[in-house]
Amino acid sequence: MIKKPEGLYKLESYRYFRSVLTAPVKRRQQPFFYVTLYFFAGFLIMYTFSTSSCPVSIIMAVFALLCFSSALTIGEYLRNSPSLATLMPISERKKLIYRFTSSLYLLLRIILYALAILAIIFIIAIIVVGITMAVEGDGGGAEEVSGDSSAIVLMGKYGAIFSVAFVIICFSAGIIAGYFKKTSNKNRFILGFILAVILAFIFTGLPYAIHHRGDLSVDTRIVSPFIESCYDNMPVPWLCSIMWCLAAAGSLAAAIYFGIRKMKASEY
């Protein structure tokens, strides 16, 4: 016999999240969906990787991407009605709030899975290295690897603000994309969002490139907005940060507004 809610199931938000995942999902998405998502992922990772030596900035870029994907995935599940989530006996307001928390639960789940996979890879690597060293004898040639202790410092105040703002923007964009019922509208929104992100990245990094034009060092490229040096040559870097914060607040407000509008429409 199954007993009444236990463990995480005691949380209503978690119960909602679990009910979302029981929805029937269409097996075949349009190729456009995957192409744009892979393109977005590729752009974010490669751009950040090639314009920054700061590992935290790459982690933040990947994190923002995961936020976007998890919010979008929850939206995809909720687009398929009827589903247990839409029938759950809770108020419409709670359903709206839990749409956000469900995206966070999914994000957490993805991160936990990724960490578990990384841990397995790490353990395997240790075993392989151990065996290799045992075979080679005293472990000659082993070098001490030092981490980049200044990684977080490299992001700086403005880079950190941008990271948080960008994560919120991606999360909100994923939530908004999930509201679209028509696939064509959703695809147009995703495409527009990705183009806006690319342009915003380029324009934010432009002052640095203009300042260093003619210099043939590695730093002459456009730099990632995740790191401090991107803001070094801006006359008013705080204004840039404020604009990104406003964009984040605006996108989050839009995500909430569309949710409330959807909620009102279901209150006939």
């Binding site: 199954i2 009444k4 009910s19 247990l84 006996p89």
Partner: peptide
């Protein structure tokens, strides 16, 4: 499914 159903209803 019944595990989730049981938690919800």
């Amino acid at each position: 499914i019944i595990k989730i159903y049981n938690a919800i209803y």
